[in-house]
Design a protein around this nucleic acid. Sequence first.
DNA 1: TTGTAGGCGTTATCAC
DNA 2: GTGATAACGCCTACAA
Lengths: 366, 366
Amino acid sequence: MGSQPDEPIIATKRQQVVTIHDVARAAGVTIGTVSKALNGQGNLREETRERIRATADRLGFRPNDLAQSLLRGRSFTVGLLTTDSYGRFSIPLMTGIEDTLSDAQILVFFCDAHDDVARERRYIDSLLAKHVDGIIVTARRTDARPAVNVGNTNIPVLYAYTQVVEPDALSILPDDAQGARLATEHLLSHGRRHIAQVSGPQYFESVQLRMEGMRHALNEHGLDLPEHRILLGPWREAWGYQAASILLDTDSQLDAIFCGSDQIARGVIDALRERGVRIPDDIAVVGFDNWGVIAQATRPALTTVDMNLHELGQYAGSRLLAMIAGKKEPGIVRLPCSLVIRDSCGVHSVRNTEETERRGENKDEE
Amino acid sequence: MGSQPDEPIIATKRQQVVTIHDVARAAGVTIGTVSKALNGQGNLREETRERIRATADRLGFRPNDLAQSLLRGRSFTVGLLTTDSYGRFSIPLMTGIEDTLSDAQILVFFCDAHDDVARERRYIDSLLAKHVDGIIVTARRTDARPAVNVGNTNIPVLYAYTQVVEPDALSILPDDAQGARLATEHLLSHGRRHIAQVSGPQYFESVQLRMEGMRHALNEHGLDLPEHRILLGPWREAWGYQAASILLDTDSQLDAIFCGSDQIARGVIDALRERGVRIPDDIAVVGFDNWGVIAQATRPALTTVDMNLHELGQYAGSRLLAMIAGKKEPGIVRLPCSLVIRDSCGVHSVRNTEETERRGENKDEE
DNA sequence: TTGTAGGCGTTATCAC
DNA sequence: GTGATAACGCCTACAA
């Protein structure tokens, strides 16, 4: 009761955590012995080992990673540097990366540079100062970016869902061309022969690759992709809506549309339906991204290409682990896309599918 | 040329980074002097200070944060623990948090527990071992969750977009009731008197709060919210579509619908339009979330409540900073929502709006 | 079988 | 003004 004299005003600045010394003192041994006991090193009497172990968790001892890292020269941390966390692509990528790394007892620093070069530089410096074991760089789009400069360190850097021109860098990307081929072949296998493409701006590498992939698949079937069936515009639902109207007005033979994104596909589908076109009977539609909230909400539900970004992230994590272990094999790795078949192309086909519906991306919660 | 003898096969296991010793040797002083020179401590001749500084960045010296942290007992890192990174709500929250923390030179560990208790426990242990300065816990929904146990440490823990029953915990949440009031008052100010609500499952606290908020606003205008105008179902676009049909069939007086999410609102709007109802002339619609990709794609574009999660994250970051500095003020803080006015309620109103359109959430890129 | 001591890279407190 | 030295918490040879 009353005022407690001499109570420090400032909170104890130092965390009063229990250290190996406390354990040693409590167990009546020296710190060396404690270390050996807890790490299963050296030859200790099983009795002592057990006694020490007991006092350790009685005291709630937790070895200080900072000290260990300093000693080992490895921090068991990795930096994840993203230019901009738009979300749609970053999230599955991030969780994939983090999945494999956390299995390796590695914690991930999340660094969002907001497309700001100076900010990115500061992040890299911080990561280097914290002696991360590696850095994964990612982005909102797959196009090339400048390499990250880690100075005179030999910290491994890996690029995921983005790439770098440096020949000694490792970049991991989805195989856009293959994804487009998959979609096109699916449409062809459903008897479609007059297929248009509605996609994003030409200056995206992914747009070009998907166009090439589609063209390639058509050519293999003796078909071509005429200019008037290629409509490029912004990555927006409204563009899909508009493009579909244009196609309906100009191309009476059209029997399928391959869209560069699910957003565009949604606009396309809405426009078609409103103009009385039956989907897929009259015109079939394929999307790209397998963005659950969109692909499952279109009427009919959207058949679409999945870039498997979660798996891509997992793979990136494992490759970084390998690099940390010393194995550096630079290059550009493109991982296959798969096709998720729903109802916008007709009856379910079992062909041309590498995988069927993937782990539900739609959490039925807010 | 030819084989180089004695070249080590194993890559130097230890990062050959330049340390303060190297700088000291190169500059012909001792490490103490280097430390003082670089940190602006002590009384050094300006000449030596400059010379040391020069050799330091000639050598590319970078102080090792691990060593500093060990000494200071602070790591300048924070853990961000999320039960599940669905994305929609986590992303703005995360970037907000990270924004303020990175300004304080703090790096953020991203930990996605996948709704797995054991995994969460492992993460917490890792974070404690790494001596993070604090932990922010977040979730996919705002309902209460068990407190995080940090053992005998006094590491501050803060809950953002989730809450905890413990009286000494700090939880930061959006003010759902106020958001609902905002939306309702907006509709009332446009002359609407027969307003229904279509929302998510009742067991969500947010659903209940939004209902209360709406009822409160109606009551203040002498109106009530009859049971038949409350439709609760899954958080899905299809539910909105279905609910709108039900309302049209049963409630001829209806002139507005307040939706618990933008996804639901989109379903509602599509159903109304397809049934020939004019929006907003016949029925006005308000959403909740301001999810750009949806709210901007509805026709007409959706007026909706924004929970300002980025700002909420920023605020959470600043509160954690305060806690780290020793100021702990537990409680539940609810931050105001704002209304983003588009076209689904009629002509733009300047009243009843705390803020207008916020920083564009729609990046026009894939 | 256990204790001792050096060192990981810093910073801070003393001497000189 | 600058140099030594003791921490910070841990691990690991090596000594006893």
